[in-house]
Each structure stands twice: as C-alpha cells, then as structure tokens.
Amino acid sequence: MSDDGLPPLRDVIAEHGLDARKSLGQHFLLDLNLTRRIARVAGDLGEHDTIEVGPGPGGLTRALLMEGAKRVVAVERDARASAALAEVGRAYAGRFSLVEADAMAVNEAEHITGPARIVANLPYNISTALLLKWLSLDPWPSWLVSMTLMFQKEVAERVVAAPGSKAYGRLSVISQWRTDAYMAFDVDPRAFTPPPKVMSSIVHMTPKVMGPDDPPLHAVEKVTAAAFGQRRKMLRASLKQVFQDPEAICEQVGIKPTERAERLTVDNFLALARLV
C-alpha cells in the first residue's frame, strides 16, 4: 500500500486494464514522490478547488489530495479510468469529484465552488489547445487562480520564450501578456509509463490583472496571427492583412516597419493590437 492507503499505481493500472492509449495522448506518472513535487509547485492547495485534466489512474490526483488540496475536480474522458478514480473518491470522501467529459468542451465554472487552480499532466495531443482555451477566459482571469501544467518541453519553451529566440511566437505573446509564467523543472521521459520520446517540463502560470488600456483578446490574436503567420517577412508585409497602411501603423507605435515578428516585445504587440 502507498502512503495514502491506496494500492500502488502499477497495481491499479493492471487491475483496471488502464494501458495508456496513444490516441488519448496518455503518459502516466507512477512515482508519487514526483507527482507530489508537481503538486507543491502549485502552492497552497487548501484554499481553493483544484481542477485536474486527464487524471488516468490517479497518480497526480492522489498527490494533490495528499498535499492538502481542498477539493480536486478531475476531468477525464476515458471511461476505463472511472472505477480506479472512484477508489480515490472513497479514500478522500468529500474532497474528490469526477467529471466524465472532454476537457475541451467542459465549462469548468459549473463544477467548482469558487476560484480554482488548474494542475494537470496534460494530454500532449491537446495541451496547446487547452492552454489557449484557459487563456481565453472572459472576463480575465475569471475564476482562475493559477495553472501548473506539464507540457512537452518544446511547448513549455514556447510559453516562456523571450523575444529573439526561435521558440518565441503567438503562444509566447498571449501567455506572457495574460500571465507571469516560468518553467519549474523538467521531467525525464523515463518517469512515465509508457515513456514519451521527448522531455517534458512543468510550467507555472499566475494570471495578471488586465488594465483599462489592455486591448481585447481578439485584437491580440489577429495581430500575432498575421505577424507570426509570415514570420520571415518584415512587418510592413506581414501586417498587410490587418492594417491598410502597416508602415504608418508601425511608425505610430515606435516600431520599425522592417522589423520581424520575433523581435517584437509583448508590449509592442499590445500597442499594435490597440489600433486594430
């Protein structure tokens, strides 16, 4: 038995036939010391509900509860996991709730009792889409207290990338506009069952409060899509699909029309978005 009185995760997987499925982007973490380390990155879990996506056999779920989570709301579309997660619910009566649904379609606000954190080992095939879904909450930051998320390291690097780097792009701009984000630590492929082919990383993101002069999200999305959609082109060319006279617009906000997207700061993009 583990520290929480529940069977070891390998036994849980064997008992319930929970082999990880590539079609669901599943890679399970079985080391409770590691999952508890992830849980601690999220901060004080006792004040708010915690939303988890893709719990699978419940490794991170159990770690969150062991680290004092007030209540964990787990969103899982794989019906095979229901019985295993029901055991977690019985062990932590009143502190666990399962939502059997596709995370992309769930309205999280309907399942929480107030502000909430998101802590998740995200399914790799929808990790970016899920992040953008949460970054699009309106009004911002709505109920969101923080996000502690595991991505493929390549995606994590895009989230925190600085201007001028190869990883810097639309995801970097929107993530860093909306949140303070940092990479907490890497997770070796050997920590997973089955091991993925790439390194993974934990990213912690804390929402920023938007100011009265912040542009609407759709304007930031429009400008970044145009600029990074043709990132090898100068802004005077790539922004033609947004502005009638991109050279004049760039000069108005103090940006060289001959600059390329990856050289612009987040504030530069916000300045352009205000003029959309």
Score class of each variant (00 low, 15 high):
236 R>I: 04
236 R>N: 03
46 G>A: 13
135 L>Y: 01
148 T>P: 12
167 A>V: 02
99 V>W: 07
205 M>E: 08
264 L>M: 06
94 G>E: 15
66 M>S: 12
199 M>Q: 13
118 I>R: 11
31 D>F: 06
264 L>G: 04
198 V>W: 00
214 D>K: 14
187 V>L: 08
124 Y>S: 00
194 P>F: 00
201 S>G: 11
226 A>I: 00
156 A>I: 14
268 N>W: 10
250 C>F: 05
73 V>W: 02
105 A>D: 15
224 T>M: 03
116 A>V: 02
219 A>C: 13
275 L>Q: 08
94 G>K: 11
161 A>R: 05
223 V>Y: 08
246 P>R: 13
187 V>K: 01
141 P>T: 13
224 T>V: 04
258 T>F: 09
148 T>G: 11
255 I>C: 11
13 I>K: 04
243 F>C: 05
35 T>E: 07
52 E>Y: 01
67 E>T: 14
134 W>K: 05
114 G>R: 10
21 R>P: 01
272 L>K: 13
130 L>S: 03
140 W>F: 14
139 P>D: 08
51 I>W: 01
90 R>V: 09
64 L>E: 15
261 A>Q: 02
66 M>W: 09
239 L>D: 07
74 A>Q: 05
108 E>W: 14
244 Q>S: 10
109 A>I: 12
232 R>W: 00
21 R>E: 06
148 T>A: 11
156 A>C: 08
78 D>R: 12
20 A>P: 13
32 L>V: 02
174 I>D: 04
255 I>V: 06
214 D>R: 07
243 F>G: 01
169 G>F: 11
160 V>H: 09
134 W>Q: 12
227 A>Q: 10
224 T>W: 06
230 Q>C: 13
126 I>P: 09
213 D>W: 12
44 D>T: 06
227 A>E: 07
223 V>N: 08
256 K>N: 14
18 L>Q: 04
57 P>T: 06
192 F>M: 12
238 S>T: 08
28 F>R: 12
159 V>R: 03
130 L>D: 07
10 R>A: 15
45 L>T: 08
163 P>E: 10
37 R>D: 00
94 G>F: 15
82 S>Y: 00
185 F>L: 15
172 S>A: 15
247 E>Y: 10
81 A>D: 00
118 I>H: 03
273 A>P: 02
143 W>A: 01
89 G>V: 03
142 S>F: 05
125 N>R: 05
34 L>T: 02
202 I>A: 09
63 A>I: 01
170 R>Q: 10
223 V>C: 07
33 N>L: 00
173 V>T: 11
143 W>L: 14
56 G>C: 07
149 L>H: 03
253 V>L: 04
174 I>N: 00
102 D>C: 06
206 T>I: 07
23 S>K: 01
225 A>Y: 12
203 V>S: 10
261 A>R: 06
215 P>A: 14
41 V>W: 14
26 Q>R: 01
211 G>L: 14
53 V>R: 05
94 G>H: 14
121 N>Y: 04
226 A>D: 04
51 I>K: 02
94 G>I: 15
167 A>Q: 07
15 E>G: 00
50 T>H: 09
125 N>T: 10
77 R>Q: 15
66 M>Q: 07
20 A>L: 10
7 P>H: 00
17 G>M: 03
41 V>N: 09
113 T>L: 15
89 G>E: 05
33 N>Q: 14
267 D>N: 09
